[in-house]
Each structure stands twice: as structure tokens, then as C-alpha cells.
């Protein structure tokens, strides 16, 4: 009562009465008032926070992305390109935190450069394969007329021998793409689409199965009885309910994409040899495995950490996006 200008302090006896009365009403229906308009995304975040693994995974993934993206600002990227024969095959030191390779290039700088490419390839290829897989899966599951054709198409892709197919794709499209977009972007596009186009089949099959079960559920029938057209039944009722399997295959897809990219680079079909990616670094380290095992260790642990953290984030997101699990 000392300071009347403080909005929290009661001004007079009458006002106190009003506050008390309204407090009593609040107390009578506390639950009802708390369910007002609250953003759904806040609920999602609340649930996500309760998943410890997902939080740690998100932190690790963001840290890796930050190092890879912002690292070159503090660590000279030239160190990873210039060879320095006198400082070759060095171990860990302050000057070279991850050591140097057989040409004396700084492995830390090469890891950062390689991470940018590998993460970009992994995320983009995963995105592409999930989009294609979901599209084909939903169309095949929902529209009976398309089912046979689309699933045979999926079987066709599953039966194709991947390596020769990738070889042919690279041979056919490397030159025109590099001519149009330049070496780096051209090969990036080529690898991303090659991986995306050859890895969507599992997603498509899983999604189709889920959609087949889902479209017989009564709420889809209810939507049709309202007169909702098929495209909105799909976006409003089907897609949100097949989110979990899509999320799982997406997280697994990133790992496969990074590893496929490294296999391609290893075969000389991916990025040029002097262009570092995590897969490339891994394969470069293999001949020196006995003398310098740490050279395989660093890219290996980076790939594993990314895959693991994304898996946990995907798991947490799946739970957080499901209203039945949320708030439990």
C-alpha cells in the first residue's frame, strides 16, 4: 500500500472486493478457462522438451551445423586446400586439432568443408526422396486406379541394380550439368537427384500401406460425406496421420544419403577427388588405417553423430506431433 502507482498493489477496499469475487469465479472453473486459444506449436514444443534424447540430439545436430557453417570464419579454409609436404601425417596439435593428411592438409578444415557438402547432400537428397516416396505412396494408396501401375513402377525401381544405374546417370548427365551450373553446383545437383531418385521406394511402400488402412477409417468417410474433395481429404486427413512413418524414413534417409554419396565419391562418380566430403575423407583415410586410424575416426564419428542425433530429433518430433501422446 506504500506506492499507489504500482499497478500490482490494490488501490482501495472496493477494488479488493472485485478482485476477490473474480478470483472466486476463476477458482470455480479453472480447467475450462485454461483451455483457451493456445497455439498448437507451443504444445508441440512443450512435448518435444520432455524428450531428453531429442533435446540432446537437436543440440548436437545444431552444434555440428554451426561449426560446419560458421567454422570457416574463424579457421582458415585455405589450410584444407594447400598442401604442405613438410607437415604431413601430423597428429593432433593446437595448430592442427585433427592432425594433417598425407599431403599436409589440415583435416579440421577439410572436415568443415566436407561437412557442408555432406550435410547439404544428405538433407536435400532425403527431402527429395521423401517427397517422391510420399507422393507415390499416397497416390497409390488413395486412388485405386493408380495403385497397380505405381506399385509396379516402385517394384521396377527396387529391382534395378543401383550402381550401374548411377554410373549411367553420371556418365549421361555430368557433362551437360557441369556446363550449365558449373562443376560444384552441377555435380551437387546430379548426386542429390541420383540419390533421391534411387531411394524413395521404401518410403512409398510404407506410406501406401498406411494410406490403405487409413482411407477405410470412418473419419475419411465422414469427410467425404461432407463433400470434401479428394485433394483436401489427403492434405487434411491422410497426410497428418501418416506423418510418423514418413518422419522415421526421413531420418533414416539422411544417413543412407550421406553414405551413398561417400560410396559414389569412392568410385570416382561423385565429387572430384580434391573436393572434400565426409565420405571422401573416410575413404581417403582407409589406406592409412593401420598407421593413422584417427584419420578414419573423425569423419566416421561425424557421420554417426549426425545420423544418431537426427534419429532422436525425428523420434521426439513424431511424439510431439501426435496429440494422443502429447500431454502425457
Amino acid at each position: 500500500m506504500s506506492d499507489a502507482r504500482d499497478p500490482r498493489s490494490p488501490i482501495g477496499a472496493e477494488d479488493e472486493g472485485v478482485v476477490a469475487a473474480s478470483a472466486a469465479v476463476m477458482g470455480a472453473e479453472p480447467v475450462l478457462l485454461s483451455t483457451g486459444a493456445r497455439s498448437q506449436w507451443l504444445d508441440v514444443w512443450d512435448q518435444f522438451k520432455t524428450h531428453k534424447g531429442a533435446l540432446i540430439g537437436a543440440a548436437i545436430f545444431l552444434a555440428i551445423v554451426a561449426v560446419v557453417a560458421l567454422g570457416p570464419l574463424v579457421w582458415d579454409p585455405e589450410l584444407g586446400i594447400k598442401s604442405n609436404i613438410r607437415a604431413r601425417n601430423e597428429g593432433m596439435s593446437l595448430a592442427h586439432p585433427f592432425g594433417t593428411d598425407q599431403l599436409g592438409r589440415d583435416i579440421f578444415a577439410r572436415m568443415m568443408a566436407g561437412g557442408r557438402v555432406s550435410l547439404a547432400v544428405g538433407l536435400t537428397a532425403m527431402f527429395l526422396s521423401v517427397v517422391i516416396g510420399t507422393l507415390i505412396g499416397v497416390l497409390a494408396g488413395y486412388f485405386r486406379a493408380l495403385d497397380g501401375a505405381l506399385m509396379r513402377f516402385t517394384d521396377l525401381f527396387l529391382a534395378l541394380p543401383l550402381l550401374p544405374l548411377l554410373l549411367v546417370m553420371v556418365l549421361l548427365f555430368r557433362e551437360p550439368l557441369t556446363a550449365v551450373f558449373g562443376v560444384e553446383t552441377g555435380i551437387f545437383l546430379l548426386i542429390v537427384s541420383a540419390i533421391g531418385i534411387t531411394s524413395w521406394m521404401q518410403t512409398a511402400r510404407i506410406v501406401r500401406g498406411e494410406v490403405l488402412a487409413l482411407k477405410e477409417r470412418e473419419f475419411v468417410l465422414a469427410a467425404r460425406s461432407i463433400g470434401t474433395p479428394s485433394r483436401r481429404v489427403i492434405t487434411r486427413h491422410v497426410l497428418p496421420n501418416v506423418l510418423s512413418p514418413i518422419m522415421v524414413s526421413a531420418t533414416l534417409g539422411i544417413a543412407t544419403a550421406i553414405i551413398t554419396e561417400s560410396a559414389l565419391s569412392f568410385l570416382g562418380l561423385g565429387f572430384p577427388p580434391d573436393f572434400p566430403t565426409w565420405g571422401r575423407l573416410l575413404n581417403d583415410g582407409v589406406p592409412y588405417l593401420e598407421q593413422y586410424p584417427e584419420r578414419v575416426f573423425w569423419p566416421g564419428i561425424a557421420i554417426s553423430l549426425v545420423v544418431l542425433s537426427i534419429n532422436y530429433v525425428g523420434d521426439g518430433l513424431r511424439d510431439a506431433l501426435d496429440p494422443r501422446i502429447r500431454g502425457r
Binding site: Q40, R217, E218, F219, L221, A222, A223, S225, I226, R236, H237, P240, N241, D322, P323, R324
Partner: peptide, 16 residues
């Protein structure tokens, strides 16, 4: 319009 048999199945679990 229609009212369905199973009130659990006839409401989309992901919609408010």
C-alpha cells in the same frame, strides 16, 4: 449428413 457408428474412428485424432 451422417452420424457415424464409432465416435472414436469417425473423428480425426490429429484435429481439434
Amino acid at each position: 449428413q451422417m452420424v457415424f457408428q464409432d465416435p472414436q474412428a469417425s473423428l480425426n485424432p490429429r484435429m481439434t
